[in-house]
């Protein structure tokens, strides 16, 4: 039974990674087809870096991802501190609110935000183009916030209050106690929330598709429009580079967590 389990797991991991391998191999292909390998080349990478339009789209995606994840992280961490000190009933209600973007189908979230912006834009402000960079940013912050909250809240509830009390007894002002103790303790949660929000935002297609206008488009939205025309292989080169970026981010996140865990065990050992 154990052997079967192992073989199945290996098989599933191959299944999960085969399409990505196909794309990565495709980025070194001389030909245009994903199905046939015509010869090895770096040419697609060279073309990628010459294509200003494509780089601009990647820049747009990165800009939205960086801005929305940073804003959501600061905003969400502050909110988590507030939610933590709410009464239990109110806290549950707020967490239900946090769950809405997580449990609603993305297409519903996208359409609902799009309709809100269109409603405000056309009916209340009388504008024609109501879907802009700003609406896209608002949408991304909105779906990023729950990731931050749900990563920070558990760390806050694990927080040992005697630590902050001790800091203040030793002469810290509440502000110092917050920065030196609380923030330090919840940092792994904040970092995990930030990285998760960044990757979600960078890769988001469905919601962006509904809330982006014509003048500011992100990479996934542009890739969707390739449905009608054939995909240029330099896109595969970009995929490969993004794959490496995400891989580095994830390894970093894990190493940070590992270090935090080690430190914690060390502290526990020293204590007792």
């Amino acid at each position: 039974m154990k052997k079967v389990n192992r073989i199945l797991t290996v098989f599933i991991f191959i299944f999960l990674y085969i399409p990505m391998a196909v794309l990565i191999v495709g980025s070194f292909n001389e030909g245009k087809s994903l199905s046939r390998f015509d010869g090895f080349t770096f040419q697609q990478y060279a073309e990628l870096f010459r294509d200003r339009d494509l780089l601009k789209l990647l820049g747009n995606s990165l800009l939205i991802a960086v801005l929305s994840s940073l804003i959501a992280t600061v905003f969400g961490t502050l909110a988590a501190l507030g939610i933590q000190s709410l009464g239990p009933k109110m806290r549950r209600t707020v967490m239900r609110l946090t769950d809405i973007p997580m449990t609603n189908p993305e297409i519903v979230t996208g359409i609902s935000l799009s309709l809100l912006f269109v409603f405000i834009g056309t009916k209340m402000l009388g504008q024609q183009d109501c879907l802009t960079f700003w609406t896209l940013l608002i949408a991304h912050i909105t779906f990023n916030l729950p990731y931050v909250i749900l990563n920070v809240m558990p760390k806050l509830s694990q927080l040992d209050h005697s630590l902050t009390d001790a800091a203040m007894d030793l002469g810290c002002t509440p502000r110092q106690a917050f920065f030196k103790v609380t923030l330090h303790e919840i940092m792994p949660g904040i970092a995990a929330g930030l990285i998760m929000a960044f990757t979600m935002s960078l890769d988001d297609f469905v919601i962006s598709y509904f809330v982006s206008g014509l003048d500011f488009v992100t990479l996934p939205v542009e890739i969707y429009s390739y449905t009608k025309k054939p995909i240029p292989p330099k896109i595969y080169a970009m995929f490969t580079l993004l794959f490496l970026l995400i891989l580095v981010l994830m390894v970093t996140m894990n190493l940070l967590q590992l270090r935090a865990d080690r430190k914690k065990t060390q502290q526990l050992m020293e204590k007792g």
Binding site: L23, M200, L202, D203, L219, Y224, I235, F239
Partner: peptide
Amino acid sequence: CMSFLLRTLA
């Protein structure tokens, strides 16, 4: 975390 559009295209 990787583009689901491209992975589906693969």
